[in-house]
Design a protein around this nucleic acid. Structure first.
Lengths: 357, 357
DNA sequence: TCTAGTCTTTGAACCGATTCAATCAGTCAC
DNA sequence: GTGACTGATTGAATCGGTTCAAAGACTAGA
């Protein structure tokens, strides 16, 4: 960037001091009208653009937030980001999105970078539960909000009750009469996955089913390819032992599973009912529309951003807040028998079911 | 951010001058071993983190790139971003992602912000063809690369030949014997959409079909909901006049259309063959796997990032380069009759077809 | 011992915008 | 005419890191 028109040049051009130019930019009411317009036209003529690093150096912090997202190719997270951005924009701060892509090294690099940049605050869906690096940031006074994480008094966080989500899904499948249910997801050390599994087990117990009526198919990660692979394993089982329903830890896995079933000629939902998680747009758009546990994605983002701005404004006397939303089951064709589906006359094939609201 | 440990404190603690601390950070080989370790342990003890704005102020530019993405919820763009990030990371610069979300005002805001931040360069998939604001940036010396745009000598750009993509899709549909074909997409002033339509028309002419064998269903934008809406319009037509094949301007529209057909009980591909565009992961994962025109998404991103870094390094004697990739048709179940599909023994139901490679 | 050369370290100047105490100009009241 | 006050403007100091000419320390060769 060959860029040399600074505030000094503007001042010289307009025949005023640098202080006055700065005032025109930041507190225009303190400047008399004739001076102001002189300065403004000088700015115009020279094509002056404020250098943010100078300003930031003085201010000690920037006017941007950052969201370190776990997986930018998962629509769930882009929807959360959309919510964050709405609030950030309204508050006049910019939002940068950084993609850790599930890689702790990349996450660590971005966190260091953001600290060097002195961003106003960091929103993050961490790769692991290991928050020592984040704790270092927090101790330095950097506001941090955890997104899509279970509550922890040490942090501001927003999340959804994943245990309840798992309960909703499996309760629904039990009500549909399924006796052998599979839980598909992983890795198990991911909190969200573990919680959804825990919820599944509780639902089973509440329905009076034996624990071994739930089989667990563990995947290495939560994406479409892993869903397909799980599908291969499932369809390899003899029909008599094969589960008649599957609850997937997210919609990407569910979509992969659904596709593999179609390829293998296993009918969904008649031979295998499927429930996903997150209710991303593609879930409803699948050829067999997917039942899914909906999380309030944009609301999650908006709330997280609001917490962050509050923390940033409050300074040292800030009290961490944990917000937990309740999930909602959206029943579509993938988990109810075809006769039942046509009985319900909801045109798009989706009917909301708010439980224990 | 209460943050007060600067390079000066480190220097005092280590008993050296600030220049030496800076050398330890930037040119460690110039510093003797004992001094270096003294400084490093002072840094460690004080928890010093370099303030990027100070450094940036001196350097005149930052060490970050930015990608202003058109629609963060379209997996096509997140894949492009992934490619950009690979190159950026290898070059030791960070990547920020900004989402214009198809809104010119937001795009403009982000461009201003990035200029104030003095980023090293901007990659952008612009909302419209109106590039006057970008031209202002370029004149100030800001490197700019257009992504997924048709070539224009005034800019560095990477893109895919969308006319050829349209030809591939419609040629394929003609070969399948379809006589009435619909083009679904919009708005028409979008270059990509117009090019894909133009290619469709050329393919039709090449196959000796009359121009009116192609009907155009214009959508307001390219997303799943618009695809569904187009599906409603299509299925409302009397069977005898209804197109037997649809070429959609992107996969989101195609997925929406596919879903609506399923809801309406129109068989895909027997009653309506569908070809999409972009070949996003969800296209292959649909229950009726979608034929699609594949763009080399990550390669597009990598190439764009390389062009940008080159432009940033070259300075004034830089010559703009336009890179155009060729699309590739991926045929899946949504566009070939079921008998043909089972004849091909490609297990995943996807077979690549590189045309005029 | 002296000189040339190498390696290390220093510290003031600088980048660009903001801030604030100080100055200046003008108005009003007495 | 003087003093008090308001409002506008100034300009030097400041933020934190980088740079570079210059000084200092040391070694090797003559």
């Amino acid at each position: 960037m060959r860029d040399s028109t600074g505030i000094k040049h503007v001042a010289a051009r307009a025949g005023v001091s640098v202080g006055t130019v700065s005032n025109v930019l930041n507190r225009p009411d303190r400047v008399s009208e004739p001076t102001r317009s002189k300065v403004l036209s000088a700015i115009e003529e020279l094509g002056f653009v404020r250098n943010e690093s100078g300003r930031q150096l003085r201010a000690g912090h920037s006017r941007t937030l950052a969201y370190v997202v776990l997986d930018a190719s998962n629509p769930f997270f882009t929807d959360v980001a959309k919510g964050i951005e709405q609030v950030a924009r309204a508050a006049g701060v910019a939002l940068y999105i950084c993609n850790s892509d599930g890689d702790t090294a990349r996450e660590a690099d971005y966190l260091d970078l953001l600290l060097e940049q002195r961003v106003r605050g960091i929103l993050i869906t961490p790769v692991t539960q290991e928050t020592s690096q984040l704790a270092v940031h927090a101790r330095r006074g950097m506001p941090v909000v955890l997104v899509d994480r279970s509550p922890d008094a040490a942090w501001c966080s927003v999340g959804v009750d994943d245990v309840e989500g798992g309960e909703l899904a499996v309760t629904h499948l039990c009500e549909q009469g399924h006796q052998r249910i599979a839980f598909v997801g992983g890795p198990m050390h991911t909190v969200q996955v573990a919680d959804r599994l825990e919820g599944s087990r509780r639902a089973l117990a509440a329905a009076g089913r034996p624990p071994d009526s739930l089989s667990v198919i563990e995947t290495t990660t939560l994406n479409v390819a892993e869903g397909r692979r799980a599908g291969e394993r499932l369809s390899g089982l003899p029909r008599a032992r094969r589960p008649t329903a599957a609850f997937c830890a997210n919609d990407l896995v569910a979509l992969g599973l659904l596709q593999q079933m179609t390829v293998m000629g296993v009918d969904v939902p008649d031979e295998l009912a499927i429930v996903g998680y997150d209710d991303i747009e593609f879930a409803g758009a699948a050829a067999v529309p997917l039942s899914s546990v909906r999380q309030p994605r944009e609301l999650l983002g908006r709330t997280a951003a609001e917490l962050l701005l509050a923390e940033s404004a409050a300074g040292t006397d800030h009290v961490h807040q944990q917000v937990v939303f309740r999930p909602e089951l959206v029943v579509r064709a993938s988990s109810i028998t075809k006769s039942e589906l046509s009985a319900s006359n909801e045109p798009s094939g989706s009917l909301k079911q708010t439980e224990r609201g």
